[in-house]
């Protein structure tokens, strides 16, 4: 049966696609989801996925330019975090190809593991993209909150 989610809390930040903001995005999400009292492993998973999504927007979305990245983090009942990272950059021409492990257009600096990691560290990953218009990545993870432990 499909779970019905209700929004409990949310925040949105907008920042330029500068790589110094990767750490900021991770820290902001970590501070916010502390409300759900996640385990260290869950916190690590979410921070990793956020880092991948924001890095993708910086490296691929805006390639050689600086543009705005919007990140919205929602706390949903039951005990779920949803993260949306959106850019208005160049878009992804072939999403299923981009999702393949080891596929990258980023050269030797990149591992091509970004989407694979987002997918395996979170419960769900949805990518919407239109060439020339931008990309948005939506990820969800159910947290095993201490209330039930």
């Amino acid at each position: 049966m499909a779970v019905k989610y209700t929004e409990v809390n949310r925040f949105t930040v907008k920042f330029p696609s500068k790589s110094a903001n990767e750490g900021f995005a991770r820290a902001a999400v970590a501070a916010f989801i502390a409300q759900l009292d996640p385990t260290l492993d869950e916190l690590g998973d979410v921070r990793t996925a956020v880092s991948e999504a924001v890095t993708n927007a910086i490296v691929h979305g805006y390639k050689d330019a600086i543009g705005d990245i919007t990140m919205t983090v929602k706390l949903l009942e039951p005990d779920t975090v949803e993260i949306v990272v959106a850019d208005r950059g160049c878009g992804i021409p072939d999403i299923s190809r981009a999702r393949e492990p080891l596929f990258t257009t980023g050269g030797a600096e990149r591992s091509g593991m970004g989407f694979t990691i987002m997918e395996s560290f979170m419960d769900s990953l949805r990518i919407r993209s239109a060439p020339g218009k931008g990309t948005s990545v939506t990820m969800r993870k159910r947290l095993n909150t201490r209330r039930y432990r």
């Binding site: 991948e52 030797a108 591992s111 593991m113 970004g114």
Partner: peptide, 13 residues
Amino acid sequence: PFTDSSGIAVLMG
């Protein structure tokens, strides 16, 4: 304490 997939390229490099 933390790396994202950038660490994969660093280790392999």
